[in-house]
């Protein structure tokens, strides 16, 4: 990653234009060629500095279900429980965290009702209580990371 890569990442986190040649518009702002910008983005994606380039959709507004849930997993069962939880395609992210509640995962479903089913199935299969903490209010969701 060089300075130009950083500039590109910072610039592209703002609103990408909706027009015939959007990359050309951004390239002009960065004072580079459209082609170079496209190549750089491709490289940043390939090397994993960018996880995605495109539209960031708002899951709940699409009518889907989304929640954060946690488990308190005994250390000796951790691997086993991880396998069970991760086996659900509805589990999108799962993190081990330092707390008595040591496993935190996001459940995303196309139909909101399905959230409760997934939670019940995880409880049955792991014999652990799932603590469901759906968001009640969203104060902010970050759209920008300065690199």
């Amino acid at each position: 990653m060089d300075d130009l890569d950083c500039k590109i990442i910072n610039q592209l986190q703002g609103g990408f234009p909706i027009c015939d040649r959007p990359f050309k518009v951004v390239a002009t702002l960065l004072e580079i060629k459209e082609n170079e910008l496209l190549q750089r983005i491709e490289k940043l994606l390939k090397e994993g500095f960018l996880s995605r380039f495109g539209a960031l959709y708002h899951a709940e507004k699409l009518g889907g279900g989304l929640t954060l849930a946690a488990l308190s997993v005994p250390e000796q069962a951790f691997e086993n429980v991880t396998t069970i939880v991760n086996s659900f395609p509805e589990v999108a992210h799962n993190y081990k965290r330092e707390h008595e509640l040591n496993m935190w995962f996001v459940i995303a479903t196309e139909k909101p009702d399905r959230i409760q089913d997934v939670i019940s199935e995880i409880e049955t299969q792991t014999d652990l209580k799932v603590y469901n903490v759906p968001k009640e209010v969203e104060y902010y969701i970050g759209l920008y990371l300065e690199v």
Binding site: I8, I9, L12, Q13, G14, G15, F16, I18, I41, L44, G48, F49, L50, S51, R52, F53, G54, A55, L56, Y57, H58, K61, L62, I141, L143, L145, V147
Partner: peptide
């Protein structure tokens, strides 16, 4: 608001 934004999603 269906789309939060269009652009790069950094890792």
């Amino acid at each position: 608001g269906i789309i939060r934004r269009i652009g790069a999603i950094p890792n």
